[in-house]
């Protein structure tokens, strides 16, 4: 297992599209959070007044954009092997298929966690610098803030696993990217159009992710942070299980 893991890590870091993805993710998250922190104004649901403003959520919101490179790279670790035929050498080198997928999962999760930690740390620093200029309070250094920050990192890891599973299931990068990004960005909007769509919206991954970042006015959220975490874990488990089944049983 250790050797297979080392091989997966070597594969990850020797291809630009995956190796650079976490850096791009961090950059995009910080840039987005900086823009938000600099331009935010009271008057929205998240930030009704300066005193009741959920500045933690505002500053962590950049991850909504930053998640994209990591999520796409996670899908690429599987789909890239099918597209290039590299699945042959991979399974020749490591015949136990479940081991191959597990080591890929460990690799992408580790990268997501690292990128997530860097991102939230950077976001909080940016918040301290830019929020006072917008007239908003700085996020307090208390347990709630840490909870939201760590939950955001977890969100990134879980959503990465979802993408890996979908990549293993679909084996085609265009399809996988469309499905994952559609799930993240389009589902909440479309859910509101459908009858009983509020259920769909409530359990959408993005809704859960945003709930994890919320520190104020939790009752107005569609879902509580802890339920959100459960929902995301369920998504990750389902996607990786389905992906593993397809990976294991079908001939490449």
């Amino acid at each position: 297992m250790r050797r297979a893991l080392r091989a997966e890590w070597t594969k990850w870091r020797t291809v630009p599209s995956t190796a650079l993805a976490p850096w791009l993710a961090v950059a995009l998250t910080l840039a987005a959070s900086a823009v938000v922190a600099a331009t935010a104004e009271p008057g929205t649901t998240v930030c009704p007044t300066a005193e009741t403003c959920d500045t933690v959520r505002l500053t962590l919101s950049g991850v909504q954009l930053g998640q994209v490179p990591v999520v796409v790279a996670a899908a690429l670790t599987v789909t890239g092997e099918y597209g290039t035929g590299l699945i042959g050498p991979t399974l020749t080198a490591v015949p136990r298929r479940l081991r191959v997928l597990t080591t890929k999962a460990v690799t992408v999760t580790a990268v997501a966690l690292a990128a997530g930690l860097l991102s939230v740390a950077g976001c909080l620093i940016i918040a301290r610098a830019l929020l006072p200029g917008s007239g908003l309070p700085v996020p307090p250094a208390d347990a709630t803030t840490w909870r939201a920050a760590l939950a955001t990192v977890l969100y990134l890891a879980l959503i990465t696993l979802v993408s890996l599973g979908i990549g293993a299931l679909l084996r085609n990068i265009a399809a996988a990217v469309t499905t994952v990004l559609g799930l993240l960005f389009l589902l909440p909007i479309l859910a509101r159009l459908l009858p009983n769509g509020h259920l769909l919206e409530k359990y959408a991954p993005t809704t859960a992710g945003l709930a994890l970042q919320t520190t104020k006015n939790l009752e107005a959220q569609l879902i509580s942070p802890s339920t959100g975490l459960t929902v995301l874990t369920a998504y990750a488990a389902a996607a990786t299980t389905l992906g593993a089944l397809r990976f294991h049983t079908h001939d490449p």
Binding site: K11, T14, V15, P16, S17, G80, T84, G85, L86, I87, G88, P89
Partner: peptide, 9 residues
């Protein structure tokens, strides 16, 4: 399969 490689690697 000699083509089973990642072109960017």
């Amino acid at each position: 399969d000699a083509n089973a490689l990642h072109p960017a690697r």
